[in-house]
């Protein structure tokens, strides 16, 4: 059992949870994820690591409540335990194993969308700790949906914010900020890392392709075990089928078949929505008498 040390609501329906998981904390590297299960009947949910502290033995995750299982996880309070917290899984970000001198000479741009800001943070933080200041673009629907902005500011080079409604920072999409930085401000980047909703990553990839800017994305495919056993997370990269859990989760954005990846994410949508509806009805006190909730 893994004790929840801390829990905060970062924005509407987005929660931060710090969990006691010493083994994961001491092995985790930027780019990796964990599999979390709330209780005995829960699903195994993959979540990207948002921070880790080996000395404290803690790992931080950020979760958006969208279905029954994420709601179940977020309903737990500090002092309570998660049934399972397995990881770190996947390969660490490539730059972690790069030569530091070469890395220090590189200009890196991160693009974070919504809850994707959380997994971007440990990467930018790791770089800062190793003497690399990366620029970061954070995109969100509006000011209230921005998360971890202050933490990010502390480790980023330049921090740019974009909101759909202009309530904070630039009014528009993160892709417009990328174009602006490169075309108007004449910035040069050697690497772009984009993490956020699949649709955002797709359009970031299309944008950076125009500039020949190498781009890495972190895919949040469906998974069961997270260790290479089920193949639910398979994705086409450069025309080859690979597994997000063991070959990724980070891939060359210009080789990923995003349309297929988005379609595959919806594989269990009907069941998920049905389960959510049933849970909502139950919570509202409705008792099905004709067995539709079975």
């Amino acid at each position: 059992m893994y004790k929840i040390l801390e829990k905060r609501e970062l924005a509407s329906a987005i929660w931060l949870m710090k969990v006691h998981a010493p083994r994961v904390a001491s092995s985790a590297r930027p780019g990796q994820f964990v599999i979390v299960r709330a209780d005995e009947c829960g699903e195994r949910i993959p979540l990207t690591v948002a921070d880790y502290d080996a000395r404290e033995g803690s790992v931080t995750i950020v979760i958006q409540t969208i279905g029954v299982s994420t709601k179940k996880i977020c309903a737990l309070d500090p002092g309570q335990c998660l049934a399972d917290f397995a990881g770190p899984l996947g390969r660490p970000s490539e730059f972690v194993s790069e030569d530091l001198q070469t890395l220090r000479g590189k200009k890196i741009l991160f693009v974070a969308g919504g809850v994707g800001t959380a997994p971007v943070y440990p990467q930018v933080k790791w770089l800062a700790e190793h003497g690399v200041r990366a620029d970061v673009i954070v995109g969100a629907k509006n000011r209230d949906m921005l998360i971890m902005t202050e933490q990010m500011r502390a480790v980023a080079g330049n921090l740019y914010i974009a909101t759909d409604d202009g309530s904070e920072g630039f009014k528009g999409l993160v892709t417009e900020v990328i174009r602006h930085l490169i075309e108007q401000q004449g910035r040069h980047y050697d690497l772009c890392v984009a993490i956020g909703p699949m649709i955002m990553m797709k359009f970031v990839a299309l944008t950076t392709r125009d500039y020949g800017l190498k781009t890495i994305v972190s895919l949040n495919s469906l998974m069961v075990d997270g260790t290479g056993m089920c193949g639910a997370c398979r994705v086409s990269v450069g025309g080859k089928t690979v597994f997000t859990c063991v070959d990724g989760p980070e891939f060359d954005a210009h080789l990923v078949d995003f349309d297929e990846a988005m379609r595959r994410q919806g594989m269990y949508r009907t069941q998920e929505q049905r389960a959510l509806k049933i849970a909502e009805e139950r919570a509202a006190g409705h008792k099905c008498r004709i067995g539709l909730d079975k």
Partner: peptide, 9 residues
């Protein structure tokens, strides 16, 4: 349980 040899240890 929850320990992946090659990753966790």
């Amino acid at each position: 349980t929850d320990t992946i040899v090659g990753r966790t240890v």
